[in-house]
Design a protein around this nucleic acid. Structure first.
Lengths: 253, 253
DNA sequence: CTGGATAACTCGTCCTTACCAGTTATCTGT
DNA sequence: ACAGATAACTGGTAAGGACGAGTTATCCAG
């Protein structure tokens, strides 16, 4: 099964063979692969070599290993499509919060845990919000769950001058969420910008989102602007990449 | 240096220590880490353990290894910000193509290689374009380079009924690119949708984009709609995640 | 001074061996 | 019949050895 003189490393040949079997459907999503020891016999290589092959497939996000159980072909998790409509006034009036409404439409149980605290603005935040560095900001730090699995982190920062005395400084900001409270206070939103990128998670994110190796995260930084041109919120979001799709609509002119 | 009884695996402790030294600035971007053998002595562990630690940092995208040279702290590559303005008519009239214009503004040498061919539309493409499955489509398959390094793949598909006899079927579609040729032919764009996600690259993408392990890719599927409501193009893009930022502007209503 | 061989480094691959740590099915005593 | 110990699986961690292959500095011959 393994060609020793092809120039292709043995562990790669094993990984390629397993990947081909997965792509051919021989092993379907959720199926258990043969155990490492069985592969040792099947391919005629040592266990570290088999483990190197499996490690490669894990880093490619193709399989996941479960200690004591086995190695499994990764299931495609249900994907949440986040469209820009979630930021419209209409949906704000209908739902408790953007995230909860989004998830509910997908038929999932959505929950979230929120911590609220205050801190001086670092340079980047101060710059975007147009305040002096060190100005106190209200921080809303949230973990969003879908069916009790964490899928998204969101850290939202607003100048405290806008939040004192409002429900925004409560863990539950009430129906329509933070944006609804801001509009009630007379701040009318003009537009939002979202800056999207992706990277591998930090160790903190790996544990907070319970990520398997080989799962990247999507980072979205949203800035909310009011009709006066002021930026009133910076929201840094981190989402498990294989659980989200972001849909943006762009007018031609 | 390594605590054998902490319950934390040795390779993890080594990785954590190296990561901490990088974060503290002891090793800066581009710096060479101590060699594996030096780490074996420094931490008092075996070479496989050191390699496991380095493998972890590689899968996290923190370091890259170069055969014969050493292991280096990854440099943050220059990031290209892609704003939605790239799709405006104005920029189309100014530039040869969206990508080339974007990169040029960043001060990079941008080049691209294009292959054009024809194929029957698969179900997904036919569905989006609103044609019968199997209808022939024009495929523009491009590799975009920045300073001679590939950074993006793009596969664009259009119904051949719109492209026959136009420069769109040429490798170089002329000034303003494909979109300019479509507008000349009387197709006026109304809006675009972009669906953004991220994942680990396939082996093909890893070699085409010369990716180091631990680098995810951003996938963007763009669909172009004309004022008649018809979808005229589906563009599947794959970008090296650490080289791009996508900026979207969202009106509040 | 120059050019090329070489030695000494680097990481990459692969093996054998051993034990630890979760999971699960089976077996056994009540 | 049930509960709990246990045996037999699973992957996870770690050691040590050997050799291959790419890179670079050095040194010597011309």
């Amino acid at each position: 099964m393994i060609n020793r003189y092809s120039g292709v490393p043995a562990y790669r040949q094993v990984a390629d063979d397993i990947r081909a079997r997965i792509n051919s459907g021989e092993y379907g999503p959720g199926d258990k692969l043969p155990s490492e020891r069985e592969m040792v016999d099947a391919y005629g290589v040592s266990r570290p070599t088999v483990r190197d092959a499996i490690g490669l497939l894990r880093s490619q996000g193709i399989v996941t290993a479960e200690h004591g159980k086995g190695v499994f072909v990764r299931r495609l998790p249900p994907v949440t499509r986040l469209s820009t409509e979630r930021l419209s006034r209409a949906s704000r009036e209908a739902n408790q919060a953007a995230f909860l409404g989004d998830a509910a439409t997908g038929g999932f149980k959505a929950t979230s845990a929120t911590r609220v605290y205050f801190e001086p603005a670092v340079a980047r935040i101060a710059d975007v919000l147009g305040v002096e560095p060190g100005t106190e900001v209200c921080v809303r730090d949230r973990v969003m769950n879908r069916n009790d699995m964490p899928v998204q982190l969101a850290v939202s920062r607003l100048p405290r001058s806008l939040t004192t005395g409002t429900a925004i400084e409560q863990e539950n900001p009430g129906p329509g969420g933070v944006y609804a409270r801001l509009e009630e206070a007379g701040h009318r939103f003009a537009h939002f910008t979202e800056t999207v990128s992706a990277r591998m998670p930090t160790p903190d994110e790996t544990s907070a989102l319970r990520l398997a190796t080989g799962t990247p995260v999507i980072t979205v930084t949203r800035v909310a602007y009011t009709t006066t041109g002021a930026a009133v919120e910076v929201n840094d979001m981190v989402m498990v990449a294989d659980r989200f799709e972001l849909v943006y609509e762009i007018p031609a002119d």
